[in-house]
Design a binder for these strands. Structure first.
Length: 274
DNA sequence: AGCCAGGTTGCGG
DNA sequence: CCGCAACATGGC
């Protein structure tokens, strides 16, 4: 375990970890505790520095927090109107993070018709029951084999509800190489999405989440109930537009960084009253 | 009690 | 292509 001081610019650890994209980070005092690449990490922000205690290299940490993204360029492209400019100012420094595709996929299958605290609980349950203990009481996320080998009943004990069969199916396809997640990283957005949509339990929204949060497809624009609400209220006021069309509209309107616009709008819609 | 939650599927128009 | 109900779980 080593301590690293990593310089950052246009970065907000709090916004990044509170905006709803990740499920396994916890804040204790000024420090965020999380699990990245199956190892525990503690991170704290001091102005333009990130202080990280971790077994990971600074390069791994920089990659996870997408420090390679040019945020000024992102803001120039998605700051198309008054609302977006305000939202950008409010959550300045919020970055997407580069999650592990497998964990991300299972996490967002868990998110289907569900609430965030419950999603967090499911992921904890899966980890505690099937994952490796990496410190005392801290469990890594189980690999595809672990879940593929699990029984229906064992999985049900993790409170996954009707998502059990989907998760089993996803795990088996990843295990058998029928779905090769890392291969999708080198494909274009549409082709990669077609591959994900072949899997039972993965629809438009989950596919977009996996592509955006773990496979570097920044044009992916996941449309959920919150995004639908904010987009219809602020942009497409003539209602009655399908989720698919909202996504297509967003890619046209916001451009190649539509996914960043999505995350800012999502966070805005969920916290604007606070 | 009834509705809703970071949706998806399978059905009938 | 569209709209619709069902799906397990839990909080309000």
């Amino acid at each position: 375990m080593r301590t690293h001081r990593i310089p950052v610019q246009v970065f907000s650890l709090d916004h990044t970890l509170r905006c709803g994209q990740v499920f396994r980070w916890q804040k204790r005092g000024d420090k965020w505790i999380g699990i990245v690449k199956n190892s525990i990490i503690s991170v704290e922000q001091e102005g333009d520095s990130l202080i990280a205690k971790s077994y990971l290299t600074p390069e791994d940490i920089a990659s996870y927090f997408r420090l390679d993204d040019d945020m000024e360029k992102v803001y120039r492209q998605i700051g198309k109107d008054k609302l977006m400019k305000e939202v950008i100012a409010r959550y300045r420094g919020l970055r997407l993070v580069r999650q592990d595709p497998w964990e991300c996929l299972i996490s967002y299958v868990c998110s289907i018709n569900n609430r965030i605290p419950q999603i967090v609980r499911m992921i904890q349950n899966l980890s505690a029951r099937f994952g490796e203990e990496i410190c005392d009481g801290v469990y890594g996320f189980p690999g595809p084999e672990k879940l593929a080998d699990a029984s229906h009943d064992e999985l049900k004990k993790c409170k996954l509800g009707f998502r059990v069969d989907w998760i089993l199916d996803v795990a088996k396809k990843v295990c058998e190489g029928e779905l090769q997640l890392e291969k999708l990283r080198n494909m274009d957005y549409q082709s990669a999405k077609r591959e994900l949509l072949k899997v039972n339990g993965v629809g438009d929204k989950v596919a977009d989440c996996v592509l955006l949060y773990s496979l570097d497809k920044l044009e992916a624009f996941p449309v959920d109930v919150h995004i639908r609400r904010v987009v219809q209220r602020e942009y497409l006021k003539n209602g009655g537009i399908s989720d698919k069309r909202i996504g297509e509209w967003a890619r046209q309107y916001f451009g190649e960084y539509a996914g960043y616009a999505q995350q800012y709008l999502f966070h805005y819609e969920r916290t604007k009253e606070m």
